[in-house]
Simulated assay, not measured.
Amino acid sequence: MLVHKVDDEVSLRLFNKDDSEEFYDLTINSKSYLKEWLGWLDYTKSVEDTAQNIQSRCNELVENGGYPQSFAIIYNGEIAGTIGFNEINKANKIGVVGYWLGEKFQGKGIMSKAFKAVIDYGFNDLKLNRIEVRIAVENKKSRALPERFGFKKEGEIRQAEWLYDHYVDHVIYGLLAIEWK
């Protein structure tokens, strides 16, 4: 899956080194919006930092036997965000999905389309048995996504993530391949 067209507006594709500046600009322009729930934003200080991130994403392709682990979300020709598997446990066939969308792309149904495509990919192409999503308890907007697609709330992890000056608890959602039909 090098490019997967979801519909006329949304597609998923592999990142490439030419995306560094556009992806950096999206990240920085959405920084104050994203910072409420993403703890890594202060580590992105330059286009070069973003280029390194993209290179590590490209390396995942080799490590996963030609199967990409993460994607650029493209909306009408622009990078709108990213989605993919933050972790894949090959032995147990479990993938953990992570995602974010730039502020100006919110409210257009983009992430719902990308999320469904990645879940399909995880179960059908990667042959995962289980997909998880871990989200800060108070991040209601992000939590709505797995809930809408039939993921089950399985529990909470206390103080699961440090966000700049405080810990947040996470909700864990899970979905099994047999439940995705």
Rank of each mutant, 00 (worst) to 15 (best):
F105Y: 14
E78V: 09
I83S: 00
N76W: 07
N92S: 15
V96I: 11
I88V: 14
A80L: 03
Y75M: 01
E103S: 09
V97M: 10
Q69W: 05
I79R: 00
N89V: 13
K90T: 13
G66Q: 12
T82N: 14
G95M: 07
G84M: 06
W100T: 05
G84E: 03
Y99K: 04
F85P: 02
G107F: 01
Q106S: 05
W100R: 09
G65V: 12
V118C: 10
A91C: 11
I74T: 08
Y67C: 07
Q69Y: 05
G84V: 03
Y67N: 13
N86E: 10
Y99H: 02
E63K: 11
I83E: 04
N89Q: 13
N64Y: 14
I88K: 05
A72H: 10
N92V: 10
G109A: 10
F85K: 04
E78C: 08
Q106V: 07
E87K: 12
F105I: 09
A72Y: 04
A114R: 00
M111D: 01
F71N: 08
K113E: 14
G107Y: 07
Y67S: 07
A117V: 11
S112W: 03
V62G: 11
L61T: 11
A91E: 12
G77Y: 12
A80Y: 00
K113G: 14
Q69R: 11
A114Q: 02
A117I: 06
A117K: 13
N64E: 15
F85N: 02
V97F: 09
G77A: 09
G98I: 09
G65I: 08
A80V: 01
I79D: 01
G107P: 04
N92P: 06
F115L: 09
V97C: 11
